[in-house]
Amino acid sequence: MFDRRTLLRAGGTAAAGALGAAALTSAQQAAAAPLPAHGHPDGPVDPTDPTAGVTRTLLQQHPSPAKGWAAVQTLVQIPRHKQSGRHSHPGVEVGYIIRGDVLMEFDDAPALRLRTGDPFFIPSGAIHNALNVGTVTTMMLSTYVVDETKPLVTTY
């Protein structure tokens, strides 16, 4: 069995995705909403698409203690010079920059410069965009507490 901490530190994303899927029951996998993805960050990336290569790998999803809410955890990867695209979530996002440098832009708040090791918090419904301003593929661990009846990501 893989040690998830070691896997994330080493950047073993393919195995992390498989490990995350294995950790879900079949009912949880069926209930998990598909996450938008634009290809693999290590594969060919369309230079004209600012979100090409961005991936969100579902690691786990569980019911929250609060009825009607779910706790969801993802590994987000953003290739160099790419961005997540403007989006929001139907609940809070608590995150951690595993690797890389990000400019987290908000529609209604000042931008935040985040580097490897920085935590971040995004309020429910806040429209934001994560722009990779570093020299490597950025890896972010994002945990959400969201309304289980709504899609995890709404793009703008």
Rank of each mutant, 00 (worst) to 15 (best):
F2P: 09
F2I: 12
D3R: 10
L8G: 01
A10C: 13
G11C: 02
A14Y: 13
A15Q: 15
A15D: 12
A16N: 08
G17F: 11
G20D: 00
A21W: 15
L24N: 02
A27G: 01
P34S: 05
P34K: 06
P34I: 09
G39M: 05
P41M: 04
P41R: 01
V45A: 05
P47F: 00
T48C: 07
D49S: 11
D49A: 02
P50D: 04
T51R: 13
G53N: 06
T55R: 10
T55V: 12
T57N: 07
L59G: 04
Q60D: 10
Q60N: 09
Q61T: 13
H62L: 15
P63E: 14
P63Q: 13
S64R: 10
A66S: 14
G68Y: 06
W69K: 12
V72F: 11
Q73Y: 07
Q77M: 14
I78W: 01
R80W: 02
K82Q: 11
K82C: 01
Q83I: 00
S84E: 02
S84T: 13
V92Y: 12
E93M: 09
Y96S: 06
Y96A: 10
I98H: 15
R99Y: 12
G100A: 02
G100N: 03
L103D: 08
L103Q: 15
M104L: 15
E105C: 07
E105G: 00
E105I: 01
D107C: 03
D107W: 11
A109P: 06
P110W: 06
P110F: 13
L112P: 02
R115D: 10
G117K: 08
P119M: 11
F121G: 03
I122H: 07
S124T: 10
S124E: 14
S124H: 12
G125V: 01
I127E: 02
A130S: 12
N132K: 06
T135C: 09
V136D: 14
T138K: 03
S142E: 03
S142D: 13
T143V: 09
V145R: 12
D147C: 11
K150I: 03
K150V: 01
P151E: 01
P151Y: 10
P151V: 00
L152Q: 08
